[in-house]
Simulated scan of single mutants.
Amino acid sequence: MIQFSGVWVPLVTPLRHGALDLPALSGLVEHLSAHGVHGFVACGSTGEAALLDDDEQQAVLRTIVEAAGDRPVLMGLSGPRPAQVAERAKRLAEHHRIAGYLVTAPAYLKPAQAGILDFFTAVADASPLPIVAYDIPARTGVRIEPSTLLALAAHPRIRAVKDCSADVGAATALLDDGRLALLAGNDDELFAQLALGASGSITASAHLRPDLFVRLHRLFAEQRLAEARTLWYRLRPLITALFAEPNPAPLKAMLASEGRLADELRAPMTAASAGCVERARQALAALDAQFPR
């Protein structure tokens, strides 16, 4: 049974001259695995999934699964029509060794909560694999309200929530209920969510210094809160810099500076500004000085 805990990395999708750079992706997965991350997400928003066609998404997923070894991989799924999303969930499970799906509410349509409940139920009924509901209203335009999540918790294949709602009350309600694992989704709220009782996180910032994000989770697991707090305040400047402009532009620039991939995104995404990149570099340099690699 898969455990939704620890540090999961929503992977960027390396590009070079407009095409997928699968060797860079494989190398990135191996690097992060060596530093102890617990799992990966393929084709999430950090991976520019909406700008990849179906063949590209399958190539990205296949590459990540092969490089991840025994570490679990979630596949991002989204779409407006539940029947199509459900069919894709079945098809992907037949061809790829994946642990489950990260599923958003339908974007742009802004359905009622009854429609969101029906959407997730239809996908979960069809899926042979566990599902993490992804509450990210900043991208979808609609919340998955706590009452809806609690109703979905009755489904045996809906196992966790990636929470990007910035709603402490919602997180508290889920934790109090206890049926769904809570995964922190907003990097700047990571400490607060872990302090509330989140079992893990899906953290884009963990592409950089993954060892320190793994350490932060371990400190919480060991109830060493003073040490966790100190580490968090050292990580915060980097997280702030990485999200000063649209994700994943600053992150890709930083990974490019480490030689892990090209600093390339797909239109309409654009490269991070020089000022943003410089602030991120300074934050990472300060972190490296405090915690040598």
Rank of each mutant, 00 (worst) to 15 (best):
I2E: 04
Q3T: 08
S5G: 15
G6F: 11
V12F: 14
T13G: 05
A24N: 10
V29I: 04
A34P: 13
H35M: 04
H35A: 06
G36N: 02
V37C: 02
G39K: 08
F40T: 12
A42E: 11
G44A: 00
G47T: 02
L52M: 01
D53H: 05
E56R: 10
A59H: 03
V60G: 07
L61H: 08
R62F: 04
R62N: 11
V65H: 00
V65S: 08
A67M: 13
R71L: 15
R71E: 15
L74E: 01
L77Q: 03
R81P: 02
A83G: 11
R88M: 02
A89R: 00
A89K: 04
H95Y: 07
Y101K: 11
P106Q: 01
P111Q: 03
A114T: 11
A114S: 02
I116D: 14
T121K: 09
T121Y: 00
A122Y: 12
A122T: 13
V123K: 00
A124C: 12
S127A: 07
P130D: 03
A133L: 06
I136L: 07
P137K: 01
T140F: 13
I144W: 08
E145D: 01
T148G: 04
A151G: 13
A153M: 10
V161Q: 07
K162F: 00
D163M: 08
D163W: 00
C164W: 00
V168P: 10
A171W: 01
T172V: 13
A173H: 09
L174C: 09
D176W: 14
D177I: 04
L180T: 05
A184N: 14
G185D: 10
D188S: 15
F191A: 13
L194T: 01
A195P: 01
L196K: 03
A198L: 02
A198M: 05
G200S: 10
G200A: 12
I202G: 06
A206S: 08
V214C: 09
L219D: 10
E222K: 11
E222C: 00
E222D: 10
Q223R: 10
R224M: 12
L231M: 14
L235Q: 06
P237K: 06
L238G: 02
F243I: 03
P246S: 07
P248S: 09
P250K: 10
K252T: 13
K252N: 00
A253I: 11
A256N: 03
E264M: 06
E264N: 05
R266Y: 03
P268C: 10
P268A: 03
M269S: 04
A272C: 01
V277T: 15
E278L: 15
Q282S: 15
L284S: 11
A286C: 12
D288C: 14
A289I: 11
Q290K: 13
